[in-house]
Write a protein that binds this DNA or RNA. Structure first.
Lengths: 349, 349
DNA sequence: CTGAAAGCGCTTACAG
DNA sequence: CTGAAAGCGCTTACAG
């Protein structure tokens, strides 16, 4: 009798297994496994090999990754637990970078959002472990110090965009210092000598690092740092960075000897500066050069003229995070890896 | 001299299995399984039960989720393939909503980014299938029509923030019509009679839907639509929405009978309008009321005064997407589910 | 009330 | 060169 005609419905008969392939090819499942995985130390005849491949194609067979993991006692999952998966465009890029790199290495990302709730973090990590993830990426949406995560101690892990004070933890963070220095140096290279820095009062790696970079670049250029050009604003006031930047900028601009360039802690501050400059009829960059930080596309690219800004290397951080995780699965010490912040050149300097 | 870096992990002896628990409790693995899963149709003595629980606690036992899936022939994975995981703050919220809801139902998200490359989409879907995901969420970062995805035909799937023209596909999208109507109605309720609409020329569900909503709200209020108040701008011109909004706004504002309120296609257009209004010394909202769309925090919340805007319900879309997927795993027809767009009230109307 | 056994889909020595 | 068998960690009838 002939084979019954396949039903016209899409009901995918049943997903085929290795056993189905074996039967169709007239070999054992062991053989199928061997040829599919192209096992080195297994000599299988060319014909048999062909029969197996034909059967695979005919059935559209795809191995059950879960069963493979079980048998291999080794999964292809990388866990990513984030305090905020993508509140800002920011953190999303980390995820994207991690995803790209994981993919390249044949891994897939399991993601979990914690909203920074300890209970959820704990659950998220458990879940990753339950699914035999090879390790977990613990990431935050802005660069900061965090408490060492207890539940991460017995799992290969890397802290992403954050770091703990434990010497055993491994972190990948943006190089705020280098970014601050770069911004300043760029201004200097454009011939500016009076470059101001509008920093934030927050106590964070970004404020501290960027200012150190600023001072270092000045020193390298042999320019004494004029502290009257360094300001710190309270972002928590009404209006946030923008308003605060606006008023401090006014002060700076109205001086007898105003700065000819200013490095802003972030793009929002720069936005305030733009306003202040425009009110005074100052041209950017001719009368006042401005550089921002964070490269928030929505702001930087839409200011007139476009704002030159130092970008946070989120994508690269994500990429390096999985690289670090993968290379650390078999142990490895703690440390902090700094990823350089590139400049995004537009028209404000 | 000792090594300064302590070992990464304290050799976690070996992760314990159900067999370990069984041995320690002096019962069979079957029994362990039964009590752990609190199986209904299984009578296990209270004492035995207790012994098992004690053993579980003592060993810190956690079931291997992969093995469970294999045995149950049913995983707890939901796949999410996105054309852009989080380029904009936008799409990130969908992921977040999906994650939250998946979690609630005991599922975990497998994510993959495709950058809208067909090859990658195919691979991503395969990967989800290989891992026995119960279904996949196919999502785009902005609301649009997409080609039906071939590889999704044999898998429970829901289109998220996009839709195809195939009647078999199920979609969850924002209700642009309702949003447009809501924006307009709010303006009307503030007493405005001459409300303009600055739309975009793009051919997209957003432009079409919002305009229909606008006209419908006008009609409902018994106000004839004055087409001279409806404009369409080319966002592709230099300066994008903002510039285009700025110039068209100028035109509108300089008329003999200018509108007293304007509904902007998006927040960027509104940004341009703000500029034009300020240049003319017009107060917002006293002289001109403005409402935006998209509720892009970076813009809307930072404009002076804060911009009232209609938000895209991304989080809710993510939530409903997994609900829909879960309820559709056993089949179900196609359709489009519209999620209402809420208003975010600030100070511009 | 509880255990022995078969099975989920795969891999990997081990024979032959 | 290829198959039979044991095993990965779990679940679920089926006996008793």
């Amino acid at each position: 009798m002939t084979d019954p005609t396949p039903p016209l419905t899409d009901k995918p008969s049943r997903i085929s297994t290795m056993k189905d392939v074996a039967e169709r090819a007239g070999v054992s499942v062991a053989t199928v496994s061997l040829v599919i995985n192209d096992s080195k130390n297994a000599r299988i005849g060319a014909k048999t090999r062909q029969r197996v491949h034909d059967a695979v194609d005919a059935l559209g067979y795809r191995p059950n990754a879960l069963a493979q993991s079980l048998a291999n006692n080794q999964s292809r999952f990388i866990g990513m637990v984030a305090d905020a998966i993508a509140t800002l465009p920011f953190a999303g890029e980390i995820l994207r970078g991690a995803q790209d790199e994981a993919w390249k290495n044949g891994y897939v990302l399991l993601v979990a959002n914690t909203d920074d709730i300890p209970e959820r973090t704990k659950d998220a990590i458990s879940m990753m472990n339950d699914h035999q993830a090879v390790g977990v990426l613990y990431s935050t949406w802005y660069h900061r110090q965090v408490e060492p995560v207890k539940d991460l101690e017995r799992t290969p892990a890397v802290y992403v965009n954050c770091y703990s004070d434990s010497p055993r933890d491994y972190s990948i963070v943006p190089d705020e210092f280098q970014g601050g220095a770069l911004a300043t140096r760029m201004l200097l290279e454009h011939g500016h000598r009076r470059v101001a820095f509008i920093n934030s009062t927050e106590d964070a790696p970004s404020t501290v690092g960027r200012e150190k970079g600023y001072r270092s670049a000045l020193a390298d250029a042999g320019i004494p740092c004029d502290d009257s050009l360094v300001h710190r604003i309270f972002p928590d006031a009404v209006g946030g960075f923008q308003e605060a930047g606006y008023s401090i900028a006014g002060e700076l601009l109205d001086r007898d000897k105003p700065p000819t360039a200013v490095f802003c802690y972030n793009d929002r501050v720069a936005m305030g500066l733009y306003e202040a400059a425009k009110e005074r009829g100052l041209r950017i960059p001719e009368d006042i050069a401005i550089i921002g930080f964070d490269d928030q596309e929505v702001i930087a690219a839409h200011l007139r003229p476009g704002l030159t800004s130092i970008a946070l290397p989120h994508h690269e951080i994500g990429v390096r995070a999985v690289r670090a995780l993968l290379s650390r699965i078999d142990g490895g010490g703690g440390g902090i890896e700094y990823v350089p912040c590139p400049a995004v050149i537009r028209y404000s300097i």
